[in-house]
Design a binder for these strands. Structure first.
Lengths: 356, 356
DNA sequence: CTGAAAGCGCTTACAG
DNA sequence: CTGAAAGCGCTTACAG
């Protein structure tokens, strides 16, 4: 970067060549719209138009502009565009975790939907913390995103008001939001209920539940599961819970705890597939036959569930679709459209395999 | 957003209240630095300074400014800051995949390092495609990032020249870059060699190799593995390769192919842990005892490797550290510093467990 | 289809 | 410690 000193108080009128300089260091060494305009012998406006929509400009001008862009290696400055247009083409996405494959696939859905429309993502990992979520929301607001996509509903009222005041639209993912908010997801409670009903219908006498993280969605699944067990006349009190982050490792530990507490436990719903895989490994180590001695059900249908030995019964969740549809809903809102459905239920599917 | 019409050709001097308006729609409804300045009875410059470094401003002014910021709910406009300062506080990060836990952990390392310094990440998934990588690099350049962090070396010369011309610093992750480029990683070839040596030392007579994706790093591991086998007087020709994306499922398939090709195979190096897990499941299904009948070695030491049944022998890779250190190196370069080491080798560790 | 003017909301570089 | 001026590189809103 070179420092250019001004030799007179103002530019010589008409002489806008970069070397005529400003009163300060040149922030970027890059070619600007003005450089392209000069090179193509048109006004700045015409270049601006040609770049956004070539059909707005005469073929002759278009060609000269394209040549100039190529020759100068022109790259638009998005900060300037954002400042002038008040549209950043940025979408803030907040997920509770990236080590959880579920949210990674949701992000893939989001990316695939918005990529075509020219949006970039600002991805934030909240670590399941409402405080961190509020902090990220504020930080991202400074980037003036055109919209937000958030997995996991935030409790903080100040943040919500902050958001409302900013006027940036937000679509919730996973949680089907209440009242007037936008959301795409499915009922965790119903999914838990379906699992409980399946476990009961297989003839379990002493079903249990193991869970980690204990985020709201996990607790909703738990509620549905317990309800189904009670409806089948079974005791729903057997469970081992921990707030620790979920992992395969933890699945081993929790299963051991569960069996210590209730050696006669004959079925277990693991709040996700990682836990279920750990439980399965632990059974193999302990010589417990699955599903004969103990039935195991997971959640999410991660890729390994279909090929584990035995294969794992689980619930397939529409995580990619949730991301894709939430993004599509947001894009419509950004464009001033009003989707007819405020809550979009993507459903889920019980996948019965060998383990239960 | 309200449309405000100008009633005279220029603002009444001294009257800069928002309602005095400009000649166009107000791009943002937000409070600006000027609003804060007016409210706090100081100049715009003083507010700007107070926001960046409170110690630059008198306590009295500082207090009034802080109160005004709170009261107006002021949020800085980063697009304006970027345009004026030519620093975006954005870092572009390109990884080949997000479904691979390895890169997710690398991103966590990057995030943890740059977050404290106030940088945001623009995360791009190249899908192992050099073309896509080039495309993302160009697209991100428009955001004027202060630096790039890229996993996987790109071949395209035009992109590299584009980058050089832009002057945006770049640090490679994983691949130890040649010549004058910055990089943080470890030797894939050496890691493969260590595995080959281990397999040979355990007395394998007919070792094999299975791999997916076949990205450069995988091929380097393969080369090291084969070399070690040859050094031990073994045949290194038994392998089943596929360009398909890696998955646990694929591990099952590839293992079956391998055994079909060589029923006497007694050890297999799987190019990553997912494949190793699939291979393990398939062995369980086929009644093959691991490691007695077949030894299995994975790569990366993902969390499940330590708790599978049997536990999986693998190589622990410093993926979090690679991200963290690469980010730290980049930050130093951005700050005009010149790290003494251009290539930073983070090493790796063979973790011998039950499977081999 | 094209262009001159003004402005987006900040920071730089000076000057005091 | 503080401020007036100029400018960053685009787009909006007009006018032709």
């Amino acid at each position: 970067m070179t420092t250019i000193k001004r030799t007179q108080p103002a530019d010589v009128p008409g002489d806008k060549r970069p070397t005529a300089g400003g009163s300060r260091r040149r922030p970027s060494g890059r070619a600007t719209l003005d450089d392209v305009a000069r090179d193509a012998q048109v006004s700045t406006m015409t270049v601006s138009r040609a770049l956004r929509d070539p059909s707005l400009v005469s073929p002759a001008a278009r060609e000269r502009i394209e040549a100039a862009v190529r020759q100068l290696g022109y790259i638009p400055n998005l900060a300037a565009r954002t400042l002038a247009s008040a549209r950043s083409k940025l979408i803030g996405v907040l997920v509770p975790s990236l080590s959880n494959a579920v949210f990674v696939e949701t992000l893939a859905g989001v990316q695939d939907c918005v990529g075509a429309a020219g949006y970039q993502l600002l991805i934030g990992n909240t670590g399941y913390s409402p405080a961190r979520q509020a902090q990220l929301l504020s930080a991202y607001l400074a980037h003036a995103p055109d919209g937000f996509l958030v997995a996991g509903i935030d409790d903080s009222k100040t943040v919500r008001e902050h958001l409302k005041a900013s006027g940036v639209p937000l679509v919730h993912m996973y949680d089907l939001a209440p009242q007037g908010e936008w959301s795409v997801g499915f009922s965790q409670r119903k999914a838990g209920h379906v699992i409980g009903a399946h476990v009961a219908s297989r003839g379990a006498k002493r079903p249990g539940f193991i869970a980690a993280q204990l985020d709201p969605r996990t607790m909703q699944r738990r509620a549905g599961y317990r309800r189904a067990l009670r409806e089948a006349g079974l005791d729903a009190g057997l469970e081992v819970l921990t707030k620790a982050p979920s992992s395969v490792d933890l699945g081993c530990t929790l299963l051991r705890s569960l069996l210590t507490e209730a050696p006669d436990c004959d079925a277990v719903f693991c709040c996700n597939d990682d836990l279920a895989l750990g439980a399965l490994f632990e059974c193999q180590r302990l010589g417990i036959e699955v599903p004969h001695d103990l039935a195991i059900v997971g959640f999410n249908d991660l890729p390994f569930a279909a090929v584990a030995s035995p294969t794992i019964t689980t619930v397939a969740t529409p995580r990619y679709a949730v991301g894709f549809e939430a993004a599509r809903m947001l894009l419509r809102i950004i464009d001033g459209d009003t989707p007819e459905q405020r809550r979009m239920d993507m459903g889920f599917q019980l996948v019965v395999r060998e383990s239960a």
